[in-house]
C-alpha cells in the first residue's frame, strides 16, 4: 500500500495507537523545555499544512494566502482575549469562525479563477491583510503588536511551561486530523477530489462544484484560524510580521515536501521542516536557503513529495485559466 493511501480508518485505527502512545510518553523522556517548544511548533504547523492540503491537495485549488488566515485567527484570539477577556476555549472556535468567514468572503468572488490566477489573487489578499494589520492601529496596535495574551487555563489552572502546551496541541492535532480524515473519506471529500481531477465530469455527476469549492476554502481557512488562536495563546504576543507571505511559503513548502492529497503527507512535511533547521546552528541560520533548496529539489525530483498523491502539482486542474500549450500572446511594444 503506498504511503499516501494510509488513512486512519475504522478498520486500521489501532495502527496509530503505538504512535499516539509514543507521542504521549515523549515529554517524559525528553525533559527539555527547548525540545518541547519545537514539538509545539511542529504541532501548530501540522494543523496549518493539513488544512492547506484541503484546498491545495484535495480540491486542487492553489491558495497562496494561508498565513493571512492564520494571522486573522491569531489576531481574533488576541483581541478577544485581551479586550473582552474571553478564555482560550472561546477564542479558539471564534478565531476559526472569523478566519472561515474571511475565507468565504475571499472565495466567493475569486473562485471563478483557477490555477495560477487564484494563486496570485490570494497573494494579493495576503499582502493587503498584512498592510491593514500593520496600519489599523486602533484595532491591532499596528507595529507594536498585541502583548500579554493570557495562556489557556485548564480547570482554572493556567498553563505555564511547554509541557501543558505540548499535550494541548497534541490533543488539538488528534482532533483536527480526525475531523479532516472524516471529511476527506466522505461524500464531501470525494466531491473535492472529483473537482480536482476533472471539474466538468464532477459537474455532470451532479456535484455543485462552485459550492463545494467554497466549502473547501472555508474548511481550510477555519482550521488555519484555529492554529492562529493556539499560536496567539502560546506565544502570548502577536505581530503582523509573523503572518507574512514568507510564512505562507513556509507552510506551502512543508505541504509540498510532505506531499499533497494525503493525510499523512502534510504531517510528515510539517514535522520534518520544523525540526530540520533546529538540527544545527548552520541550518538554522540558513533556514530560508534550506527551505528553498528542499522545495526546488522536491519539485524537480519528487513532485509528489514524501507521501503525496502523484501528479497534483502538474494536474490539468491546477493549470491556469490559460489552457493553451504554447505562448499566450505577443509582447509587442
Amino acid at each position: 500500500m503506498p504511503l499516501y493511501d494510509f488513512v486512519p480508518r475504522r478498520d486500521n485505527w489501532y495502527v496509530w495507537l503505538p504512535v499516539l502512545a509514543a507521542l504521549l510518553l515523549f515529554p517524559l523522556l525528553v525533559r527539555s523545555e527547548y525540545i518541547l517548544s519545537i514539538a509545539v511548533y511542529a504541532g501548530i504547523y501540522i494543523i496549518l499544512t493539513s488544512s492547506l492540503n484541503i484546498t491545495n491537495g484535495y480540491t486542487g485549488l492553489f491558495s497562496f494566502g494561508h498565513a493571512a488566515f492564520y494571522g486573522i485567527g491569531a489576531y481574533t484570539a488576541a483581541i478577544l482575549a485581551t479586550r473582552l477577556g474571553l478564555s482560550f476555549w472561546l477564542t479558539l472556535p471564534l478565531a476559526g469562525v472569523v478566519a472561515g468567514i474571511f475565507g468565504a468572503a475571499i472565495a466567493l468572488p475569486t473562485l471563478r479563477l483557477t490555477g495560477i490566477f487564484l494563486a496570485l489573487v490570494t497573494i494579493g489578499f495576503q499582502e493587503i491583510t498584512f498592510l491593514v494589520t500593520l496600519n489599523w492601529i486602533g484595532l491591532t496596535r499596528g507595529p507594536m503588536g498585541i502583548p500579554a495574551i493570557p495562556p489557556p487555563a485548564i480547570g482554572g489552572v493556567a498553563l505555564s511551561g511547554n509541557l501543558g502546551y505540548y499535550y494541548l496541541i497534541l490533543a488539538l492535532d488528534v482532533i483536527v486530523l480526525g475531523l479532516l480524515s472524516r471529511i476527506v473519506t466522505s461524500r464531501v471529500g470525494r466531491a473535492f477530489v472529483a473537482i480536482r481531477e476533472d471539474e466538468l465530469a464532477a459537474q455532470s455527476a451532479g456535484i455543485p462544484t462552485f459550492r463545494m469549492k467554497i466549502l473547501s476554502f472555508v474548511i481550510a481557512t477555519f482550521f488555519a484560524g484555529i492554529a492562529g488562536a493556539f499560536f496567539a495563546h502560546h506565544a502570548r504576543f502577536v505581530s503582523a510580521d509573523s503572518f507574512r507571505l514568507d510564512e505562507t511559503f513556509a507552510i506551502l513548502t512543508m505541504l509540498i515536501v510532505g506531499g499533497m492529497g494525503s493525510l499523512v503527507g502534510p504531517v510528515l512535511g510539517a514535522v520534518l521542516l520544523v525540526v530540520l533547521p533546529e538540527a544545527s546552528r548552520f541550518l538554522a541560520e540558513y533556514r530560508g536557503v534550506v527551505y528553498g533548496l528542499i522545495l526546488i529539489g522536491v519539485i524537480l525530483f519528487r513532485p509528489e513529495g514524501l507521501a503525496g498523491v502523484p501528479g497534483i502539482i502538474q494536474a490539468r486542474g491546477a493549470l491556469s485559466r490559460v489552457d493553451k500549450p504554447s505562448g499566450a500572446g505577443e509582447p509587442v511594444g
Partner: peptide
C-alpha cells in the same frame, strides 16, 4: 504546467 516553475521560482 504553470505551477512547478512558479513553485521553483518561489524557492
Amino acid at each position: 504546467g504553470h505551477m512547478p516553475p512558479l513553485l521553483i521560482t518561489i524557492g
